[in-house]
Nucleic acid binder design. Structure first.
Lengths: 366, 366
DNA sequence: CCACTATAGTTGTACGTACAAGTTGTATGA
DNA sequence: TCATACAACTTGTACGTACAACTATAGTGG
């Protein structure tokens, strides 16, 4: 038999562990004394002691001299439970991200979790670095805003490692196609559609679209932008659609806008749909620089309803982004995954158009 | 003797641990066999085994059947070292705080520390809650932006607890007078002075000052504001100095500004010094609402050189705040405190005036 | 009623023996 | 030269004894 090779104290240990599993031993309950066990199993007290001392080190038993041996909560997990959740965003200080973080932080704090923050600066190397650092010490779960998702993902291995380690995670804004996890995102395609449709409905036909192409948000907004034109039967002039990458964002769009706006009046776009509010404010600056008025000469629609939209000179018409709510929902879904092992489905937020002062209605002039 | 009460196996354990400390035992080195130790110390092999098995569980020794017992890396402390630093700010998403956090995060990440983030919402109860949560699990150090510092501090006990636990901390922006710790702050008095002096130098004499009174920053900026008037020999009309608390900030200042600006032209302030850019943008809105032009009719000076200052319609003249640099410095000073036990002195940043478009020079009209 | 004592029962410490199992080097033999 | 066997050593398992230290309780005495 193989049994003869397994040490008795190990056999006893397994026996006792099965007592925990079957519920025969409940937390706080007293375990038979060393001598009783020894007699019962036909072992010496020393052998029982060896078993007990291992189980004590592992947290299953508590031995009190003179009193007895007691079962502890099955695996001390509750008391030593790590309650720390990480959030990895592309940027920390800019734009809407602080609001997402704030929503998550408030929810986590109220649920007794600590929040670890890290930024990737939209850089794959830093993303890897952040992942390693976060997981270098105990972690309950992770909220990830992916980096440059339209391109590949060289850090896939690290994410798979998360799964192996049993660290649940979810993604916000977008997700890597290769990974299976819950996603919270805005319906960007619908947003792009609504933005363009609003302008078309207001009589604009020469609409410029500026979109980021190295993240899915930009790609989807562009998709909606095109769909709205198609639905209204308006052709999109390729030269009025400008796409750019993260590296170019401070330079290329502005120059392209200047060029478009410098053209002849009958060729000039009457409206701009901008990837986000930040870009919209920047391009409004380009228009002002050329002596054009907003919205009389050029209309603008932004995205995300950020602080910039209402702080700028001409209050910006824009599409909402759930921001704080998204952070809060992400946190609460992640906690559900951790504590109850649930696997929530994706969450899709519908952006709403917020009409302010940056769009003129061309129809009334007719 | 007391020695007789200390178990022999504990004495042996301490002896062996001292071998590690003295360097007598180096990683990988073979330890004398159980029998040798037993003979050498006049103990039974069983007693030596008890010591060895404890040291093995704690990671000091590695025992290999048939081969011997070996010393392991001296205490694995490096690998299990906690490298997590917390940062507690009043607000997370608003204004300049994301920039401070970003500076700190970048520095910490490059030094291999994780960043825990928590906000107090400028509320003493939440401050306590955050403190408790942060310290509920291992923490290396803490960066604190105090809550409502001009009032008392009911959470003093928790801060003293930090000292007892040996968790170093430092404060940014301001500090509780009762606590002795490094402080990084802007010279707000100088800032207030520079703001008022700039306006006075440009020929303004009826200058309104709006300051928060429940934090030291506001109090100090007001102090500088008054000092500049005194230095220039200009009297300050009490009705033009408005102070407010955090709770009132969205309401009272705006109404007061409307009232001041609605007065007769010869009584109306020609310029406003505002507690920060956020308030300045809000009060500029009040001026516009009354049909006044900025800066032609009313000039504005803000504080902090935030994104609002350059995103707003009229670009705001304001005073710089180190923001990102302050976060970075705070992080690096805290790491020095943790790793080298240093106690850095206070750091004072000098604000610089950034001239933009919101101040008119009245002298040229003369 | 309370304080004290004795006692039984528990785990902790300490020693002992015996043999099993694994590693290493040496001696032996083909 | 190479493979094998063996001896000597290591740690692992298992049992045994004895007493110390601690806890809880029942009984005793004031």
């Amino acid at each position: 038999m193989n049994n003869r090779r397994i040490p008795k104290y190990i056999l006893l240990k397994n026996e006792l562990l099965s007592w925990f599993e079957s519920g025969k031993l409940k937390p706080g309950q007293q375990v038979p004394s060393e001598n009783e066990i020894a007699e019962q199993f036909g072992l010496s007290r020393q052998t029982v002691r060896q078993t007990f001392s291992e189980l004590e080190k592992e947290g299953w038993l508590e031995r009190i001299q003179g009193k007895g041996t007691f079962a502890r909560f099955p695996g001390r997990r509750e008391s030593e439970l790590v309650k720390t959740i990480g959030i990895m965003t592309t940027y920390i200080s800019d734009y809407i991200f602080p609001h997402i973080v704030r929503g998550a932080e408030a929810e986590l704090r109220s649920r007794g979790y600590r929040l670890l923050l890290s930024s990737t600066d939209n850089n794959k190397d830093k993303e890897m670095e952040s992942l390693k650092l976060m997981t270098s010490q105990p972690l309950s779960g992770l909220i990830i805003e992916p980096t440059k998702s339209a391109e590949g993902n060289p850090n896939l291995g690290y994410y798979l490692e998360l799964q192996e380690k049993g660290i649940p995670y979810l993604m916000i804004n977008e997700k890597y196609r290769e990974l299976e996890c819950p996603l919270l995102r805005v319906d960007d395609e619908l947003g792009g559609y609504k933005a363009a449709d609003h302008l078309l409905a207001n009589g604009h036909s020469r609409i410029a679209g500026f979109f980021k192409r190295d993240d899915l948000q930009g790609v989807n907004r562009l998709k909606g932008f095109l769909a709205a034109h198609k639905a209204r039967g308006v052709a999109v002039a390729p030269k009025r659609v400008v796409t750019y990458t993260t590296e170019q964002k401070n330079d290329l769009p502005f120059r392209q806008a200047l060029q478009l706006l410098s053209g002849a009046a009958e060729e000039r776009p009457t409206a701009f749909v901008c990837y986000n509010d930040e870009l919209a404010v920047s391009l409004m600056g380009a228009a002002l620089q050329l002596g054009l008025r907003v919205p009389e000469d050029v209309s603008f629609v932004g995205f995300d309803d950020s602080m910039l939209a209402s702080a700028s000179g001409t209050k910006l018409t824009t599409l909402t982004h759930p921001k704080t709510a998204m952070g809060r929902d992400a946190a609460s879904q992640l906690i559900a995954m951790i504590e109850e092992g649930l696997a929530p489905g994706d969450t899709l937020y519908e952006p709403e158009l917020v009409e302010r002062d940056s769009v003129v209605n061309l129809n009334v002039n007719v």
